[in-house]
Structure formats: C-alpha cells, structure tokens
C-alpha cells in the first residue's frame, strides 16, 4: 500500500509542532522517521489515523492508495484503523488492556473488521489468535492466548502488540518507537521480527525512532525531523556516511556510540 503525505501540518494551541511535512512511502517500502524527542514524530503518525489529541489541528494531505485520510469522519476512519493500517506503540507495558486476555486483544480487530462477509465463530477466532501468536514467535501459543498482559515480559508484550497490529493483514504498518522501551537484545529480536513479517507480506512500513542505529537495520529511506521540520531525507546508508544537517550529524554520532558500546 502506498502513502503520499503532502504538506502535513499540526498545530496545538497556536504552536506548530509539525510543519509542512511531505514524504512518500511506496508499496512495500520501509520508511524511517527519525528525530530527537519532541520533534513531532508521534503526532505525525497519529495524525494520519485521526488519533492526534483533540486540541491538535491537522491540515495537509495524506493519501493511502487513493484515499485521502485527513478530514475523514470517525466512522470512515474506524474502517481503516486496524484494518488497512496497523499501529504498534512505544511502551508495551501500557499498550495492552490489563483486564483482557491476550487472545481477546489479538482478535479484537478481527471481530471489528472481519464483519459482514466473514462471520467467525468463537473457535475460529481462538484459532486465529493462536496462529497470530505463533507467527510473532511467542512460546506455547495455545496457552499464551489465555494469559493476561502482566504475565508476559516487555519483549513478549511487544510481540503481542505486533500481532494485534497485523491481525487484519493491513497494507501499511505504523510503528512508533516500538523498540525504545526494550533492552538491546530484545530490540534486536523485535527488529528481526518486523523485518521478517513486513517483507514476507509485502507490508509498507513507517518506522519511527530516535535511534539511527535501529533505523539502519530496518529502513530503506529516512526522513530526519527536527522541531517539526524535515531537515534532511535520503537512503539510510547515505545519511550514515555523509550527513549534511547538524541534527543528522548528532544522530549519526549517537548511533556510532551505540554500535561502539554494543560491540
């Protein structure tokens, strides 16, 4: 699925926090959005699905395979969210409902969007949940669907988050710093999982992070955000080798330090 963002602008209380942002994600492309904390990364991807805070005013255009997303009604957005576009969140500790079993949370999008043409029975839904748990590499899927979030580790929960986002086989996956809250080893596992699932299904990916080292493993093209502005964009290898903007240079230096300390 392709995404064409043109002139996306987000203002909150008179302050412009995302300023005239444009980028294109081709079908099956893995696109990276990078910038330091507070640069507007989260608001950018939340705005694409109409999930920005109420106080935010969003203008510009974001076209998903011919459908304009900005300005859609809640009802129209509800048919896109979780169905054609999946989303993975930063903090796996808080992104799952503590009261619902894992299986129920994974099939929630299926129940919502499977709808009219495909009425799934309870047993079928459970089967789909078990299948989804297996696909994201979690141990003992048959019993894990009956577990509660607090019984899982951070890395396991993030796998569940990915399973939820991909439950309806969306054409586009938005991931907001999905590895930031994890330790380095788990980060590598989750990145490998993204890589495997996205390429096997041909899903387009927008991967948000503040860590260029992470992005170098997952993204093709990268846009660098600073205080709501795009300051540089290009293939990730080019940015790593020859960063032009000071912000990018800072990110490259930080990434070098991470790689250095890790090896």
């Amino acid at each position: 699925m392709s995404l064409i963002v043109t002139g996306l602008t987000v203002t909150i209380g008179g302050r412009t926090v995302v300023d005239d942002l444009s980028f294109t994600v081709a079908d099956g492309e893995r696109f990276g959005l990078i910038g330091e904390s507070g640069s507007g990364k989260s608001l950018t991807i939340l705005s694409l699905l109409g999930l920005a805070p109420e106080a935010a005013h969003v203008t510009g255009s974001a076209v998903l395979d011919g459908t304009e997303l900005i300005g859609l009604s809640e009802e129209e957005l509800a048919t896109i969210r979780g169905n054609r576009v999946g989303m993975v969140f930063q903090d796996p500790q808080s992104a799952l409902n503590p009261l619902h079993r894992i299986g129920r949370q994974i099939v929630e999008p299926l129940r919502l969007h499977g709808g009219r043409n495909e009425r799934l029975s309870k047993a079928e839904l459970r089967e789909r949940a078990v299948e989804a748990v297996r696909e994201v590499g979690l141990p003992d899927p048959e019993s894990l669907v009956d577990a509660y979030p607090h019984q899982l580790s951070g890395g396991q929960r993030q796998r569940v988050g990915i399973a939820i986002a991909l439950a309806c086989r969306p054409g586009l996956l938005l991931a907001d710093e999905p590895t930031t809250a994890l330790d380095v080893t788990t980060q590598a596992e989750i990145l490998a999982l993204f890589e495997r699932l996205v390429s096997s299904r041909g899903t387009s990916l927008v991967f948000v992070t503040h860590d260029l080292a992470v992005l170098s493993q997952i993204a093709d093209d990268v846009a660098v955000l600073s205080a709501g502005h795009m300051v540089e964009r290009g293939p990730v290898a080019t940015l790593l080798e020859a960063p032009t903007h000071p912000v990018t240079r800072g990110l490259v230096a930080a990434a070098r330090a991470t790689i250095w300390s890790a090896s």
């Binding site: 999930l51 509800a78 896109i80 969140f89 799952l96 009261l99 929630e108 969007h113």
Partner: peptide, 26 residues
C-alpha cells in the same frame, strides 16, 4: 488517556466499545 485506549482506537474500536469494553471495566 492510557496507551491501551489509544491502541484500541488505533484498532478501529468505536466510542461505544472504548467506553464499554476498555474504560468502564477499568
């Protein structure tokens, strides 16, 4: 304001489902 409510909205859950299945039980 929790992430799991935002995540549920991102899954396509409507206002009634958000209130009934996610907010009120919590």
């Amino acid at each position: 304001r929790t992430d799991y409510v935002l995540a549920a909205r991102a899954s396509g859950v409507g206002p009634a489902g958000i209130l009934g299945r996610h907010i009120l039980p919590n």
